Amino acid sequence: MDDLRILHNDTCPICAREVAGYARLARKTGLPLEIDGLDAAPAWGIDRDTAAQSFRVDLNGQRHEGLDAFRLLWARLPGWRWLAWLTGLPGLHWLADRGYRHIAAPILYAMHRRRTRKTP
């Protein structure tokens, strides 16, 4: 069985809700899944701010980020495998990867920065 670990921005309500859904499905189906929030970022070799910028997965010691990280997770979850397959198609992979890296991730990170901004 694969050793699958997620690092995600657990301070993001959208991200936390999505990952909680993955966790419920993983428990229900018996998929071993470890979930780390931003406090675990140093153990991944990055700081909290860097960790907040993208979704990450460690699969058997190999680190993956962004769409490829999602695809690794989706491929193991019933009900999500179709999305892993679909986003693996060459043209669609390119489009989905750019959409995540240049639109979704920056928007979620900007929201994170607003939430964590210190007030004087």
Rank of each mutant, 00 (worst) to 15 (best):
residue 83 L to R: 13
residue 49 D to N: 07
residue 96 A to N: 00
residue 47 D to E: 10
residue 83 L to F: 13
residue 68 D to Q: 06
residue 62 Q to T: 04
residue 107 I to C: 14
residue 104 A to V: 12
residue 87 T to K: 06
residue 95 L to G: 04
residue 95 L to V: 11
residue 113 R to V: 12
residue 87 T to M: 14
residue 64 H to L: 15
residue 66 G to I: 05
residue 61 G to P: 14
residue 98 R to A: 14
residue 75 A to I: 13
residue 107 I to E: 02
residue 44 W to S: 07
residue 103 I to M: 10
residue 108 L to F: 08
residue 94 W to T: 12
residue 113 R to I: 10
residue 73 L to G: 01
residue 54 S to Y: 09
residue 55 F to C: 04
residue 67 L to E: 01
residue 106 P to C: 15
residue 68 D to G: 08
residue 54 S to K: 14
residue 98 R to D: 00
residue 68 D to H: 07
residue 76 R to E: 11
residue 46 I to Y: 03
residue 63 R to A: 13
residue 59 L to S: 09
residue 56 R to G: 01
residue 113 R to N: 04
residue 92 L to H: 10
residue 59 L to A: 11
residue 76 R to C: 02
residue 59 L to I: 13
residue 86 L to Q: 05
residue 70 F to K: 00
residue 83 L to T: 03
residue 68 D to R: 09
residue 64 H to I: 03
residue 90 P to E: 14
residue 84 A to L: 05
residue 89 L to E: 11
residue 66 G to M: 06
residue 51 A to K: 03
residue 104 A to E: 02
residue 94 W to K: 13
residue 63 R to C: 01
residue 71 R to V: 08
residue 105 A to K: 01
residue 89 L to M: 13
residue 111 M to Q: 13
residue 75 A to D: 13
residue 83 L to V: 14
residue 77 L to Q: 15
residue 57 V to D: 00
residue 71 R to N: 14
residue 93 H to R: 15
residue 66 G to L: 07
residue 49 D to I: 07
residue 91 G to C: 11
residue 86 L to S: 11
residue 101 R to A: 13
residue 67 L to D: 00
residue 111 M to W: 04
residue 93 H to F: 13
residue 105 A to F: 08
residue 101 R to Y: 06
residue 103 I to A: 04
residue 102 H to L: 07
residue 105 A to Y: 06
residue 76 R to I: 05
residue 83 L to M: 14
residue 103 I to C: 05
residue 65 E to Q: 14
